[in-house]
Structure formats: structure tokens, C-alpha cells
């Protein structure tokens, strides 16, 4: 599974998820990802992709859609350690 599919599969298991999740489904606006599930998602991403989200990654834009979440993960996994 690529990054997007992994994220989409996790999101798809949420009780609030719609039948079909598109890359641009509005996760926060539509109430699919609430304040509890965002934290669960971060915990999942950090474990699954062995990354640590820096403090400035915790902004609503990064969780707005499945595509935005996947893009965040790609940025973090491809970052060259300083």
C-alpha cells in the first residue's frame, strides 16, 4: 500500500466515515475527523511511518482532506534528518 492508501484505509474505518472517501473529502468540516480522532490519527501515523510530527505540523490544514494528510506524511518521511 502506498501512503495515500494507508491513510485512506485508516480513515475508512472511522464510524463517521462516508461510504466512499475521496482525496478531497472534507474531513474536519464534515465532522469525520474530530478532536479525538485527529490525535488517534497522529499516533497511527507516527507509529506506522516511524516519524514524529513537529509542533508546526499540528494545524487544521494538514488534516483537512485525505490528500492533505497523505501529503503531510510524504513530507515527513522524505525529510532529510538534519
Amino acid at each position: 500500500m502506498d501512503t495515500y492508501e494507508t491513510i485512506a484505509a485508516w480513515l475508512g474505518h472511522l464510524p463517521t466515515a462516508p461510504h466512499s472517501l475521496a482525496p478531497d473529502t472534507a474531513l474536519i468540516e464534515d465532522g469525520i475527523l474530530d478532536s479525538i480522532e485527529i490525535l488517534n490519527l497522529v499516533a497511527f501515523i507516527e507509529e506506522r511511518f516511524a516519524v514524529v510530527l513537529p509542533v508546526d505540523a499540528f494545524i487544521p490544514e494538514n488534516f483537512a482532506t485525505p490528500a492533505a494528510v497523505a501529503a503531510l506524511v510524504v513530507t515527513l518521511t522524505s525529510a532529510v534528518p538534519a
Partner: peptide, 28 residues
């Protein structure tokens, strides 16, 4: 309370990142 539980768990699991976790907790 839920945010504090999440942050506490993250600190226990990864003490090296405790400062980052506290900052996330504080900003949120």
C-alpha cells in the same frame, strides 16, 4: 483531559521527544 492523556502517553513512549510533545500540548 483527552489531550493530556494522549500527550502523556506520547511522552512515556518517547521520552526523547518530551519537549516537542509538551509544546504540542501547550499550543493546542
Amino acid at each position: 483531559g483527552n489531550l493530556a492523556a494522549w500527550a502523556t502517553q506520547r511522552i512515556l513512549a518517547n521520552p526523547a521527544q518530551a519537549a516537542n510533545t509538551r509544546l504540542v500540548f501547550e499550543t493546542q
